[in-house]
């Protein structure tokens, strides 16, 4: 009998403190391989912290985060290769153009022809028209599109999406849903934190509801 695949991500008794506030308190959870997760909860319930811990942007105060069977602290470099985070902060350089922003990342990732890869992704997210405008001139929705292009460029095994529908118009929301669907059908594990529970439930098989940094029944 083949061994069971490692869970896509596993949290073992994870706590995270900011100053005097506990953002996550002794959270234990495992997401089975091949499933996608919807994270719900009020503002400040710990969704963003959870995503940032899995992305290794933060280290846990206590406990252990495992991503694809690897320790997120000990194997930070290799975990970072496999996960990508769409965060509230866009990670975009305001002074560079959309195309340059993607090219910079493509070079860091060692993608053979960074310029072409950047152009291809701009087409995919519908930003070809504005590819040579500086990000400073972009609307919030366009920034979100560019940020998702940045995530797609990484071709991650796990996509962590923090409020991907925020600041998008109805067309933008549909596009984002399509992109998330494409990610899932190409075998990417999606972890989605959103207030739009309806969209989330159609996209994800699993759900985790957080309240004050703890898992509770939704």
């Amino acid at each position: 009998m083949p061994p069971l695949p490692a869970p896509a991500l596993a949290l073992h008794d994870v706590s995270k403190r900011y100053g005097r506030r506990w953002a996550l308190a002794r959270l234990t959870y495992a997401l089975p391989a091949g499933r996608s997760l919807l994270l719900t909860g009020h503002n400040g319930s710990g969704k963003t912290t959870l995503l940032r811990l899995v992305a290794t942007a933060l280290s846990p105060t206590a406990g252990r985060v495992e991503v694809l069977g690897r320790d997120a602290m000990a194997d930070r470099e290799s975990v970072r290769r496999d996960v990508a985070l769409l965060s509230h902060a866009s990670f975009l350089y305001e002074d560079l153009t959309a195309h340059q922003n993607l090219t910079v990342l493509a070079r860091l990732l060692g993608i053979p022809s960074p310029q072409d890869a950047a152009s291809a992704l701009l087409t995919r997210v519908g930003l070809t028209q504005r590819s040579d405008s500086p990000v400073r001139s972009f609307s919030a929705g366009m920034r979100k599109r560019l940020a998702i292009a940045r995530l797609l460029l990484k071709a991650p095994a796990i996509a962590l999406l923090d409020e991907p529908f925020g600041e998008l118009d109805p067309q933008g929301i549909r596009d984002m849903e399509r992109i998330i669907g494409e990610l899932k059908s190409s075998g990417v594990t999606v972890v989605l934190a959103t207030h739009l529970i309806e969209q989330g439930l159609t996209l994800c098989e699993e759900r985790l509801h957080l309240q004050d940094g703890r898992a509770v029944a939704a």
């Binding site: 942007a57 930070r76 970072r80 902060a89 990670f91 002074d95 860091l108 940045r150």
Partner: peptide
């Protein structure tokens, strides 16, 4: 300052660089 705008330093770190 350029790196702290939009948390670009995080973006670079997580790239990973």
């Amino acid at each position: 300052r350029v790196e702290s705008e939009n948390a670009c330093m995080d973006g670079v770190r997580l790239a990973p660089a």
